[in-house]
Nucleic acid binder design. Structure first.
Lengths: 189, 189
DNA sequence: ATGAACTTTCAAAAGATTTTGAAACTGCAA
DNA sequence: TTGCAGTTTCAAAATCTTTTGAAAGTTCAT
């Protein structure tokens, strides 16, 4: 809301921190810890591998927190460890292919949830169908079936979207004023 | 994972609770409190307006929690208050149009976040551009610009999706075996 | 106006999540 | 083998979120 703030002397990393907070919010909004977004952003902006200590310094995080964040980010395949010949310490770099990251996360996380939700709704339907004479059971079963349909539609839609990279992007193909290169890998694969 | 559980005598609401938990998880995954999903689901399955007390009983929630949840669900436009002539207490019913709910939430919540994130990234770019001689500033500015492009693409894509209801749903139009009626309101509006 | 029935509010309690910091661990080099 | 630089782990602390419950507030019938 208030655009004017942080007027303090720029140490050369203010801008990064602002960006890191912003992306941290996005990431938190998608159900991850904010710190994961912040760490990834620092690495992404650095555009070169950074040691854990530097990340901790920039974000004022303890070594433990940095270590845990990096481990988790690697688990999600969005950060890579980089070995530097002759160097003792480890360096880390951010995955830069947004599509790769999104699809990986969807694949692992959304699919798991969707499956568990579907199974549970199916169970609920079965329970209601098993007692057709319970007052209202048929109507309730209808409602749960509708929920289930929706979950299946959403699951399938997301799936198709992830697979085909298509969501009908055409209507705004040139609304954007940047050198963007989102989803820039091979066009059809 | 384990499908066999809750073998206790079904009081007629077991199934609902299972469904409510499942949808609660979905809703939590989308950044809302789980309880909101549970309350909405009870109302959705009931298929008729319910008084707050009944919801509290079924979900074992205090009156306060139910009241707060209902207020918030109404704020999101996914639950409506229903006045019943001659009745003192208030009844509540769930919105049943999934698309309406989704687009409302996107409109209010995602847009807000996207805007704030965009503004912050723009600020970060400006800060880096203001110091072109700072070592690495140009490269970092590039990276932040790329982040920004992505946010703009995502924002625009979501927007278009919500407006047009189109994501290329065709490929799986009949994969579903239910009376589904997702996105059933007027076709173009 | 009063009281019964019901709802809302909000401070405190409970609960959950995140972060810290210190100890344990891991090579590696002397 | 010991010490060092760096990393990981994990229990405790700090912090954040959610729920409760009781008081205040509403509304309506009398």
């Amino acid at each position: 809301m208030s655009e004017r703030e942080t007027p303090k002397l720029d140490d050369g990393h203010e801008a990064e921190l602002i960006a890191a907070e912003a992306i941290g919010d996005v990431i938190e909004h998608w159900g991850f810890r904010r710190v994961l977004g912040r760490v990834w952003t620092i690495l992404f902006i650095a555009a070169e591998p950074l040691p854990a200590a530097v990340i901790g310094e920039r974000l004022s995080l303890s070594a433990g927190a940095v270590s845990m964040s990096l481990t988790e980010l690697q688990r999600w395949g969005v950060v890579r460890r980089v070995f530097r010949p002759g160097e003792r310490k480890e360096y880390f770099e951010a995955e830069t292919d947004f599509w790769k990251m999104i699809s990986k996360v969807f694949d692992e996380r959304e699919r798991l949830l969707a499956e568990s939700v579907r199974a549970r709704l199916e169970r609920a339907v079965a329970m209601l169908e098993a007692r057709p004479r319970l007052p209202g059971a048929e109507q309730r079963a209808d409602r749960v079936r509708r929920l289930l349909s929706f979950v299946i539609v959403a699951e399938t839609a997301l799936d198709g979207f992830i697979r085909s990279r298509r969501v009908d992007f055409s209507p705004f193909g040139d609304l954007i004023r940047f050198p963007l290169r989102v989803a820039s890998r091979k066009r059809r694969a």
